[in-house]
Design a protein around this nucleic acid. Structure first.
Length: 603
RNA sequence: GCACCGGUAGCUCAGCGGAUUAGAGCACUUGUCUUCGGAACAAGGGGUCGUAGGUUCGAAUCCUAUCCGGUGUACCA
């Protein structure tokens, strides 16, 4: 209750001259009030007074303006006993030892709030700002697994939170279209026919190629060469032209490792694997991958504004690394170019390997500059798995040495792994993993067998909510059987309550009603509804979609209880209750939209 | 070894800028059972909040130590 909190804060300030932010929490069951504050207890230390004395004084003084002081504290407030005062003021205050202030909202205040509940909730926290959110980051030549599904859903929700707060949001997607994984896949792919190449073939070949790389020395050497050749193919440009030339291949400096030293072209002529084939295969595979990504994102309702294939930022990264190499930020070590993070208590990482090939680090350097060049962002958020935390810290620390402003604007958020029950870690390298599409299929199957429904909206909501309700950071156990349950704290539960609300509203029109005294169910619902704005703003400032998700669940739970106990249509209280239903649905629609969840008409 | 993250009910998780009796869901037991859609509601059992100390009138929450699990720790992404 923001108003109440503000008014308490003002009273404390007026009385004691302190700038103190009081907490206000829902009162426990045994206290006949709506909200309680422990402010007097916290204040007691600094003021050297007993908590009860402070509480007494707070309750007695400036509250007169906003809040009606109960004549005798401690007693249960009779409904009509405080009525006159309650209607005049917004809340009644009482005290309980050892120094809690308890507030009971007046029905009049509540119903006014409900009647005037704005369906366009708003925040200006990021008004006029440009925020670029990078997430999902799949690699071409590999398949999308559950982790990608998770990060896509969470990343989209966070983007939506920024949008709600007034920002212009760019959803960005960074993917490894060059790199060792591509070489591994292509190595195994060379025996396949180009004609009927599918994404499944590519996935299989990645596993095959990785196995060969790990066990077969000859294959390993060839894959290493292939990796360089892939960069060369990108240099030459293809269906999507590379942005610029490599700085290291222009021959102006002999001391540096050159990116492609061995002449893959001559070598490969002796091979069964000729360059034109390789080039064709690469672009074909890449195209296939991006089509597959787009199709998937489309199916889950996530739209990216910008794709940054690694190949498009590698050269910019190399350019920056070269510049800073001269200034001593980066240095040579064992033939590679590194950033010595140990100076800053971090790890040391390689930016360009001894083969002259830029690593992920360099591409991330290029990426941050490219993003800024493209959008002049005020804030850049990068969402990845936890395992990238230390890695990213090193990259950012190095950039901080020459572009501190960019780093200051960057936030790296991480989430945990999606794991299978029994501590089985999924690995796309080993092939024991759940694909992103598998998860959706499992949900669809459950929906079909339990409710004989093929409603894609419900399937999607179930999936999204299942991931969104967890706090980001920890690992998630995804039990294909359990996680897909359609009852309880689940997407379908939220949707179901909304559908019921819609059904009621489809019949009648509500009108405003004042001086209505809520019953227990109505009041609980009203209280929850007016907390929405506060929760939403908290979710924004903490970048915590799960807070919003859990609030919406509790809200729909409150609604379900109201629904069971308070008939709306045809009742004497109809107009007041309709108003509540409408307010409920407005809040749910708004909140679920931020989570990326749609409400169906029926289910 | 060092660093970071986690350890709350049988299971999956909230809560953790200290505050009145630690909350949900699943599972289990029982009830509502033709009323605006039961994918619902109600009641119940189930917890030494990893362990041990400390700070405090008060600790799941803060501090210290310790155990367990996960992740990271130079040429992968």
């Amino acid at each position: 209750m923001e108003e109440l909190r503000e008014s308490l804060k003002k009273v404390i300030h007026d009385l004691y001259g302190l700038d103190f932010d009081p907490d206000l929490t829902p009162s426990p069951e045994n206290i006949p009030a709506d909200y309680s504050s422990n402010a007097p207890l916290k204040l007691a230390k600094d003021l050297h007074k007993s908590p009860m004395t402070i509480a007494e004084r707070l309750a007695n003084s400036a509250f007169e303006e906003h809040i009606w002081r109960r004549a005798k504290y401690g007693a249960t407030e009779p409904r009509d006993g405080g009525r006159e005062g309650a209607f005049r003021k917004s809340a009644i205050v009482s005290l309980t030892p050892p120094g809690f202030l308890n507030f009971t909202l007046s029905d009049d205040f509540l119903s006014k709030k409900i009647n005037n509940l704005s369906s366009d909730f708003s925040s200006d926290e990021y008004k006029g700002k440009t925020v670029i959110c990078e997430f999902s980051d799949p690699n071409p030549f590999k398949v999308l697994h559950v982790g990608h599904l998770y990060t896509s859903i969470v990343g989209n929700a966070i983007s939506n939170l920024y949008e709600y707060a007034g920002a212009k949001v760019i959803r960005a997607n960074f993917g490894g279209d060059v790199g060792l994984h591509v070489a591994k896949t292509m190595y195994a792919l060379k025996n396949k026919s180009l004609e009927n190449l599918t994404i499944e073939d590519i996935a299989k070949c990645y596993i095959e190629g990785t196995a060969l790389y790990d066990t077969d020395e000859t294959a390993k050497a060839e894959i290493t060469e292939l990796n360089k050749e892939i960069y060369r193919i990108n240099e030459a440009g293809g269906p999507r032209k590379a942005l610029s030339r490599s700085i290291f291949s222009d021959g102006e400096n002999t001391e540096r490792p050159s990116p492609v030293t061995t002449g893959a072209r001559e070598r490969s002529e002796k091979d069964a694997f000729s360059v034109p084939d390789l080039t064709e295969l690469y672009w074909k595979g890449r195209e296939l991958s991006y089509d597959y990504f787009n199709q998937f994102y489309n199916s889950i309702g996530v739209k990216f504004d910008k794709f940054y294939p690694e190949s498009t930022v590698a050269n910019l990264g190399l350019q920056k690394v070269k510049e800073q190499l001269e200034k001593g930020i980066y240095e040579y070590s064992d033939g590679a170019i590194i950033f010595n993070g140990e100076k800053y208590g971090l790890h040391t990482r390689v930016l360009v390997n001894k083969e002259g090939v830029p690593t992920y680090e360099t591409k991330d350097v290029g990426l941050i500059f490219q993003k800024y060049a493209d959008y002049h962002f005020d804030k850049s958020v990068v969402i990845t798995g936890n395992e990238q935390k230390d890695y990213m810290a090193v990259v950012l620390k190095s950039i901080e040495q020459y572009a501190p402003d960019l780093v200051k604007k960057t936030t790296h958020l991480t989430h945990g792994l999606v794991k299978l029950p029994g501590n089985v870690k999924m690995s796309s390298r080993k092939g024991n993993f759940l694909k992103a599409v598998d998860v959706l299929d499992l949900v669809r199957d459950e929906l079909k067998s339990e409710y004989n429904s093929t409603d894609e909206t419900v399937a999607l909501a179930a999936t999204k909510y299942a991931f969104l309700k967890y706090k980001m950071g920890g690992d998630i156990i995804f039990d294909p059987k359990e996680s897909v349950k359609m009852t309880g704290n689940s997407g379908p539960y939220l949707l179901y309550s909304c559908v019921r609300a819609k059904k009621i509203l489809s019949n009648k029109n509500e009108k405003n009603i004042d001086n209505y005294i809520y019953n227990i169910y109505e009041k609980k619902l009203a209280k929850r509804i007016i907390e929405y704005q506060t929760v939403l703003d908290e979710a924004v400032s903490e970048l915590a979609p799960h807070k919003l998700a859990n609030f919406l669940y509790e809200l729909s739970q409150t609604f379900s209880r109201f629904y069971e106990n308070c008939p709306v249509l045809g009742s004497a209280e109809e107009s007041a209750r309709l108003k509540l239903v409408k307010a409920y649905l407005d809040v749910m629609t708004h909140g679920l939209k931020i989570l990326g969840i749609e409400i169906p008409e029926e289910m």
